[in-house]
């Protein structure tokens, strides 16, 4: 099978790669780019541990062909922290103890990030439904939902302050 040239934008960096057309974005992230934050588990789109952002939306990278991700901005868990400072969602997951073994955490955080991008003021039920594609087998979902709701309410306060400034 002949390889094709693909240019991927991952975490703000451009990568040019020669890959086979049947390789998934997840495989290329983990094996070609060494970004092992997105995990490979069910590989069938059921567990959510491979979630990354593509064009600002969370996608299951095990079900996206790498060639199909060309021209889209991809963000993985490695790209969230800025200047050594954890992203507010990462901070909230730590503070709420929403992590145990940590395996589902990158996927949970990327789903939450994508969800809050388009739903800045969700209800708890909205959050529970949004992470319905992400499976956690340790903590249960209570602390995870609390951490996401915490960030959502911080966002609400911030946007309120910004509005007050204007």
């Amino acid at each position: 099978m002949s390889k094709i040239l693909v240019e991927l934008q991952v975490n703000g960096e451009s990568h040019e790669l020669a890959i086979e057309p049947h390789r998934t974005l997840l495989e290329v992230l983990r094996e070609n780019l060494g970004l092992t934050g997105a995990k490979e588990a069910c590989d069938l789109g059921e567990c959510g541990v491979c979630m990354v952002l593509m064009g600002g939306k969370p996608v299951l990278s095990c079900l996206v062909l790498a060639a199909d991700a060309q021209g889209q901005e991809i963000v993985t868990i490695e790209g969230l922290a800025q200047g050594g400072k954890p992203h507010p969602l990462q901070q909230a997951f730590v503070e709420h103890g929403a992590i145990q073994c940590g395996y589902c955490t990158p996927g949970m955080i990327m789903t939450a990030k994508g969800f809050l991008n388009s739903h800045p003021a969700p209800t708890e039920e909205d959050v529970r439904k949004a992470i319905g594609n992400n499976i956690c087998r340790c903590t249960g979902y209570k602390k995870i939902v609390e951490a996401i709701m915490d960030v959502a309410s911080q966002n609400a306060v911030q946007s309120g302050e910004e509005l007050a400034k204007v």
Binding site: M51, L60, V64, F115, K129, G132, N133
Partner: peptide, 9 residues
């Protein structure tokens, strides 16, 4: 249908 994440894919 499925879940929110799968619905936009």
């Amino acid at each position: 249908v499925a879940a929110w994440t799968l619905r936009h894919m």
